[in-house]
Amino acid sequence: MITIHDVHKRFGEKRVLEGVSLTIPEGKTAVIVGCSGCGKTVLLRSIIGLVSPDSGSIRVGEDEVVGAERRDLFRIRRRFGMLFQGAALFDSLTVAENIGLALREHTRLSRQEIRNRVREKLEVVGLSGIEDRKPAELSGGMRKRVGLARALIMDPRYVLFDEPTTGLDPVMSDAINRLIIGTQRRLGITAIVVTHDMTSAFGIGDKIAMISDGRIVFEGTPEAFRTSALPAVKQFVRGGLDG
């Protein structure tokens, strides 16, 4: 379970998070929506300790992330996978090395075994035979899927997805959504998905939360989100489903 309580974060004069509280139950998927620039990525980065909030608390299971020592942070991060909005692939490494790096660093698996697992994960995200290419030779959508494979390679318990389907065609988006749901069911992971894509939000979310002006203005089931009377939510649902 991830419990976020009253998290504040500002960059200089710019207040981004102003008291965000949100709970993601174990084994469930929470979708976070909100306008561009409202702090969704900052919230995800806070959860994994890349951004340190000014105040508040973020608990992952028993561990507190806010103010944690570097060593504890690395221990906590071993339970996480994260897909970055821009994929953030290591451009000096090949696709296979990108995906297999964590295995190489954290396990004693043989090269061959790592190679097999990498191939497996690549197949899962619908990419085969590109092991030896460099990230610069891939399209945006392919990079995203490689990032997804990299995030899932350690079979993490918690996964943070920053816009997993942005920039993918509808067929691929659908495949990725099903992949997220599938992994979530199969491994029982706890997932947080940031997305602008309402179809995928309704498809994969056990729970939807909306950020606006630095706070969570809505939190509830997809059904409740769809029928909410809140103007901000209504606008989002309508705009999202039209576009």
Binding site: F74, R77, G81, F84, G86, A88, F90, A102
Partner: peptide, 21 residues
């Protein structure tokens, strides 16, 4: 230049999330 590029393209953050120092 190399590490700076990795910093601004979030590759260093990605290392951190993989629990690699």
């Amino acid at each position: 230049a190399e590490l700076g590029t990795m910093r601004v393209t979030e590759q260093i953050d990605a290392l951190e999330t993989l629990a690699i120092d």
